[in-house]
């Protein structure tokens, strides 16, 4: 705890509050709250753009339900990417199903909840192919965080 001697002027009290390291997160939070409150007044102007990339389609009859995007393995299907010309093999990953996935999809109607578990599918198409750089940054972040934690954990005191 820092010393809190005397009352001081208003400015010195403010500067004392700001200079205390423990108040840092609080300060940032106050700033963010203020911006959010002001932003709440502009909410009606935030209109949802109907013309989205990679739109979601629901076909309740398919066993791949929320992730059914058509196509057969090793063939392509239609995917609405930002720049299709940059990904010549767009759609192949979306249509791919591993043999295990194929088996489960043929025998149960509930594969859609687990398709993210297997290589292939629309999410993998986005994560690995069209927006691959995002996942590169993401794994690097995880790698760095892991290195920090491991270094702190392993260092002998």
């Amino acid at each position: 705890m820092k010393r809190r001697e005397g009352r001081g002027t208003r400015i010195s009290r403010i500067s004392r509050t700001i200079s205390e390291l423990e108040n840092l997160a609080g300060l940032y939070a106050v700033l963010f709250i203020a911006v959010t409150l002001i932003g709440a007044f502009t909410l009606p102007s935030l209109l949802y753009q109907e013309d989205q990339l990679y739109p979601k389609t629901i076909d309740t009859n398919s066993s791949l339900n929320p992730y059914e995007r058509g196509g057969t393995p090793f063939n392509t299907t239609e995917v609405r990417a930002q720049y299709p010309e940059n990904s010549p093999y767009l759609g192949y990953v979306t249509a791919y199903l591993t043999p295990v996935t194929r088996f489960i999809a043929d025998h149960t109607p509930y594969l859609g909840t687990t398709i993210v578990a297997h290589p292939g599918g629309i999410i993998d198409e986005i994560l690995y192919n069209t927006r691959g750089l995002d996942t590169v940054a993401e794994t690097s972040i995880l790698f760095v965080a892991f290195a920090i934690a491991a270094h702190l954990f392993r260092r002998e005191d």
Binding site: I123, A145, L152
Partner: peptide, 25 residues
């Protein structure tokens, strides 16, 4: 959209990584 679903994964990972580093600190 599907894109949002794919963006959640990096978002989640960033949160978890920072949490891991901070808790170790």
């Amino acid at each position: 959209t599907d894109l949002a679903e794919a963006l959640i994964l990096p978002g989640l990972v960033v949160g978890i990584s920072e949490l891991m580093a901070i808790s170790e600190v």
